[in-house]
Amino acid sequence: MRIDVLMFEGVAEVDALTTFAVFANAQRRGLAVEPYLVTADGASQVTGCYGSTFSDLVPWSPGTARVLAVSGGWVLEEIERGVVPRQLAEAKAAGGEQLILAGIDSGALLLGAAGLISGRPATTHRADFGRLAEWAEVIDARVVDDGDLVTCGSGWFAGVDLACWLLERELGAPDVVVALEQWIGRDRQGTVWRH
């Protein structure tokens, strides 16, 4: 299962890296996951919202990825520019129903601006509930699972909870997820909201 974690100028480092780290650790534990830090435009380097530089990034592959994880960060600037939302809409069109969009924290706003969550249940950082309500039915839950759209709410470790849930849901590997949580030293928080 290929998992693309989207990197862009102003990405929230902790959102992207903690999510990536869960999938990478699961891969080391033998689960069939292939996580990548990717860019939509083929750029091999970006700078995060706190000034960290990430290099050796690879182009995304929405046609072959099972999950496209979209981190938060300086997303309002990206929404105003419109480039990342357009790219996300194109990615979903290429990936179709098999591509799971995973909004990490304020990354859900980018999915909203892309027109990909219209009227669907979703969550984001609590400070952005009002903005998310422009596009989605806001659910105040740690993780909201609506099939091919999975979003997670506030907190630096929300992406960990989202990644653990996707591993459990997609690969049926609760034993590995429990071992991973023990390794991290942190149990998941909150409840996964589903229809």
Results as ranks from 00 to 15, higher is better:
Ser71Asn: 07
Val144Gln: 11
Ala127Asn: 08
Thr39Val: 01
Asp15Lys: 02
Ala26Met: 03
Trp74Arg: 14
Thr191Glu: 15
Ser106Leu: 10
Ala108Lys: 11
Ser106Lys: 07
Asp56His: 14
Ala40Ile: 05
Ala43Ser: 15
Leu101His: 13
Ala114Asp: 03
Ala65His: 10
Leu166Gly: 04
Leu109Gly: 08
Glu9Tyr: 03
Arg86Gln: 15
Glu9Gln: 14
Gly51Gln: 11
Leu162Trp: 04
His125Tyr: 13
Gly96Leu: 05
Gly72Ser: 11
Val38Tyr: 07
Leu132Cys: 02
Leu57Trp: 12
Gln98Cys: 08
Ala32Asn: 14
Ala133Asp: 01
Gly30Lys: 09
Trp183Lys: 14
Trp135Cys: 10
Gly190Ser: 13
Glu77His: 13
Gln45Ala: 15
Glu90Pro: 04
Ile117Phe: 05
Ala43Cys: 06
Leu162Gln: 00
Leu99Gln: 11
Leu149Trp: 07
Phe8Met: 12
Leu68Ser: 06
Gly96Val: 01
Gly153Gln: 03
Ala179Leu: 14
Arg188Thr: 11
Glu78Asn: 14
Val138Arg: 04
Phe20Met: 12
Thr124Asn: 05
Cys49Pro: 00
Val11Asn: 00
Ala24Asn: 06
Tyr36Thr: 09
Asp4Asn: 11
Gly73Met: 03
Trp60Ile: 10
Ser55Lys: 14
Phe23Gln: 13
Arg131Tyr: 10
Gly112Met: 10
Asp145Thr: 06
Asp15Ala: 07
Glu134Arg: 15
Glu97Asp: 15
Glu97Tyr: 11
